[in-house]
């Protein structure tokens, strides 16, 4: 095959030690609730951006759409904004756990204590209203270490 031929004749002479590498972590932010407002996810996305992350916003999405974006965008972490009901979030979590096991998930928004316990049990960290942006950025730093290439 062409690839092997190139390798054989030493057509890949680039010095791999050169400084053109920078691992940039990527986070997907999706809205899953009925609640249409953007303030929460936008402020969080902004804080993550200022912490050096590439934050991909997809707005209101279904579980399937969130999985699709998670795969295509090759993200290191998924943030779910929840507005009351957690049904859509649960579907997204289930889909991601099935197809992209190594991608961690955290959630924020209006989440009842019972729902928070349910999400925690699935391994999803929950940041309810009142959480500090510093804590959220720290969580992102910690969670994005987990992913295997």
């Amino acid at each position: 095959m062409f690839l092997e031929k190139l390798l054989a004749i030493g057509m890949f002479p680039y010095n791999s030690e050169a400084s053109n590498t920078m691992e940039q972590k990527r986070i997907l932010m999706a809205k899953t609730g009925l609640d249409g407002h953007w303030r929460g996810p936008t402020i969080v996305a902004r804080a993550l951006r200022d912490a050096g992350y590439e934050v991909i916003m997809i707005g209101m999405a279904t579980g399937e759409e969130i999985l699709r974006a998670c795969v295509d965008e090759d993200v290191d972490l998924v943030g779910l904004n929840i507005g009351g009901h957690i049904n859509v979030a649960l579907r997204a979590i289930e889909a991601i756990k099935k197809e992209r096991q190594s991608v961690p998930i955290f959630a924020g928004g209006t989440i009842t204590p019972a729902s928070a316990r349910e999400l925690n049990a699935l391994g999803v960290e929950v940041y309810p209203p009142g959480s500090s942006l510093t804590d959220i950025v720290e969580a992102a730093d910690r969670l994005t270490q987990r992913k295997q290439a």
Binding site: M22, V55, M57, I58, T62, E65, A69
Partner: peptide
């Protein structure tokens, strides 16, 4: 300043997120 970015184009391209025939990359 931070090398971070807010990639928001997908928000407007939300009509066909589910289609196998579309690959959006930010």
């Amino acid at each position: 300043f931070s090398q971070g970015a807010l990639l928001g184009d997908r928000v407007r391209m939300n009509s066909y997120n589910h289609s196998e025939k579309l690959f959006v990359r930010s």
